[in-house]
Simulated assay, not measured.
Amino acid sequence: MDPNDSSQRDQSGQPSTSGMHHEYATQDGSLDMGCSDFELLKRALLNERMAPEILQYKEELVERVKAGLKRQETEIDAMEGQRDYELVRQVLSYEQDRVRFLLKAYLRARLEKIEQSAGSMLDTEALRERLSKQERSYASSFFVAMGRYMKSSVLNDLPPNYQSLVKRYEGEAEKRLLDTPDEAKYVFARVLDDCGQVPDGPDGQTAELRRGDTMAIKYTTVKALVEAGQVCLL
């Protein structure tokens, strides 16, 4: 960024400090219209922390945020040593730290879930597809390392029929030792867009979700709406 370039100044004549706050809309033009990447990242972090299962990796959002951080780093470096822009430089640096914190928190939240349920994620195609390439590699390495540790510390001392990492005993049909998320648990949610009546129970019960509502509700009821961006977990 050239501080003397008028095309990079805001209406006050100062260099732009927009940083991560670029307008973004989904491909279908719905819901996220006008949301900044910073707000979308906060929403992704909340959803990931509160959902009982691992959610789809937000690859496009993460890559945009990384690119924005790189652009902002260039702007900050260009202001180095220029006293007239020292305040702007500090503001940009603080904003960059804030975005980096959110990005790292989002990635850490996903890694925690992977470490808790690496076996089931690797065993279930639908869950594997939600992981990034790096996350799949990490899940595989983590599961192998944990398997070696469990075998050397415990399993090798048990009878052969009870040395499996995924089954309670050899010959069991189901892999009962693999953790599965409790999707029936209650979560706090905020409705971002009118959803109308949605199924909420095995006997045909429904719940009306109106924009602005905040409620405690079963995750299974809002799971698809969270994925669609119509509901945000709290």
Rank of each mutant, 00 (worst) to 15 (best):
M1K: 03
N4Y: 04
N4V: 07
S7G: 04
R9I: 08
Q14M: 13
Q14D: 10
Q14K: 15
S16Q: 06
Y24V: 12
A25V: 12
L31H: 13
S36E: 06
D37N: 11
E39L: 11
K42I: 04
A44H: 00
L45H: 07
E53N: 08
Q56E: 12
K58P: 03
R64H: 05
R64M: 07
V65G: 03
A67N: 12
L69E: 05
Q72C: 02
E73H: 11
A78F: 01
M79F: 11
D84F: 03
E86R: 11
L92N: 06
S93T: 05
Y94Q: 10
Q96W: 00
Q96M: 07
D97H: 04
V99W: 00
R100G: 01
E112F: 01
I114E: 04
Q116A: 12
G119Q: 12
A126N: 11
L127I: 05
L131Q: 02
A139V: 03
F143C: 07
M146P: 01
R148A: 13
Y149F: 09
K151A: 11
S153H: 05
V154C: 13
N161K: 14
Y162L: 15
Y162E: 12
K167W: 03
E172D: 12
E174F: 06
R176A: 13
L178G: 09
A184G: 15
K185S: 15
V198E: 11
D200I: 08
D203W: 05
D203I: 11
G204K: 08
G204I: 07
Q205E: 15
T206S: 14
A207G: 07
E208D: 13
D213M: 15
D213R: 03
A228T: 05
G229M: 02
L233T: 02
L234H: 04
